[in-house]
């Protein structure tokens, strides 16, 4: 698992890559939260386009970041979700908390 964090004006975009499990999520959380607390973005984008595996820890990661964004007054967008990941996140009600976007099928 790796994550590339891109800073754009009032946004932070995190390009996630590889497998997201409990182990990876606890490492990712630290670097994402560090960036959010320093930049206090209006929008945090979590891009799942290059994620090859995800269990429910991915949902926990999104839920936790949603809560953090609320405390700094920002919004959350989760994009490029695989159909399976999108389903699990909807099951958890995350579509009601932030913006969820599926991977576009070309």
């Amino acid at each position: 698992m790796s994550a590339k964090i891109e800073y754009r004006k009032a946004e932070i975009c995190v390009l996630l890559d590889g497998e997201i499990d409990h182990h990876a999520a606890s490492l990712l959380r630290v670097s994402i939260d560090d960036a959010v607390l320093h930049k206090r973005p209006r929008l945090l984008i979590l891009d799942f386009g290059a994620v090859t595996f995800m269990d429910s820890s991915g949902v926990g990661l999104v839920m936790g970041r949603y809560k953090l964004l609320r405390t700094v007054g920002g919004r959350l967008r989760v994009q490029n979700l695989s159909p399976a990941a999108y389903k699990v996140m909807r099951l958890a009600g995350l579509d009601k908390l932030g913006e969820l976007r599926q991977k576009e099928v070309i």
Binding site: S26, D55, S56, S57, M63, G64
Partner: peptide
Amino acid sequence: EPLFTTGGEERAGLGFAV
């Protein structure tokens, strides 16, 4: 039960449901 967890804020409580 879905969404029940004793694992704190970072756990979704979806392990068994998944």
